[in-house]
Amino acid sequence: MTVAVEFQNVSRHFGQVRAVDGVDLTIAEGSFFAMLGPSGSGKTTCLRLISGFEKPTGGAIRIFGEDVSNTPPHLRNVNTVFQDYALFPHMNVRDNVAYGLMVKGAARAARYAKADEMLALVKLDGYGDRKPGQLSGGQRQRVALARALVNEPRVLLLDEPLGALDLKLREAMQDELKSLQQRLGITFVFVTHDQNEALSMADSLAVFNEGRIAQIGTPQDIYDRPATRFVADFVGSSNVLPPEMTRALGGPAEWASLRPEATRLAATGPVTGTVTALRYLGSATRVVLDANGTELAALVPAGQPLPSEGQTTAIAFDPSALHLMAAS
């Protein structure tokens, strides 16, 4: 395995604020890597450290083995799709896409040919003469993608690329990005705060919290075996059980997570709660209970009987689904 990007104890402090604090990270070449976390968790700063818009206060960053600590952005063979797309409003789509070639001195004919090729790749053939202002959000997103790919970077960085799109378009773009990445074989690093997006697209992902990586692994690892309460909370909409409840349910006195889909309602059991809300999700209904101050959720598949609000009920679960984790 070739390592595309490597962080060694990297920090980025803004005065007293530790935006990134001692991060170690390796991203394999050709992978689709996601950085997930709430806003302010340091994921975007990490991305900007790779592109070179931020300089680390400590530690080392290597791209394909080369230390880039002193390399300015324009000399890094890394390109970015910006959250706001950052298309140049005074240039048409073709010139936007060809920009990376233009600044490297490519002849007009050559760079336009390549730009049109890129536009075809993102399914925007024939849009070359339009101005960015005449395109829809999804189209602009594709132009930004084409522009970032035109230099054939070894790593493509995507900063919340789908954040501004509506749900349906977002799902379509997720599939498209994934297949594009597989076709091109380029390393994609993308930042998101949407756990579903991260889980569905990434080969591996890092969950950020307060400038540090809380957990790094495959989507499966993260979802099934959250390492900390924070990961469980943030990623899976899991039930987080305090130690005494874990013990009541038959486990050791430790923090544990329990996925709602592994949780069922039962007539009797060691833990009971009052139904506080019912949320209809289509294929199932999410039942929220209050068990002595701890919020628990269970998924009731469609067609099964539902409790009513205020009713008291016990929960049952598949013991293998109980996952113990660190307190923080």
């Binding site: 592109s51 324009h74 959250q83 950052a86 600044v103």
Partner: peptide
């Protein structure tokens, strides 16, 4: 002129001078 516009230019390989001439001045 948004900062991201200047970053995009540098990201795509433009020197400061090229960014000035092709992005900042026109905008």
């Amino acid at each position: 002129v948004p900062t991201s516009m200047l970053e995009a230019s540098a990201d795509l390989g433009a020197t400061r001078r090229q960014t000035l001439r092709t992005v900042i001045l026109p905008l």
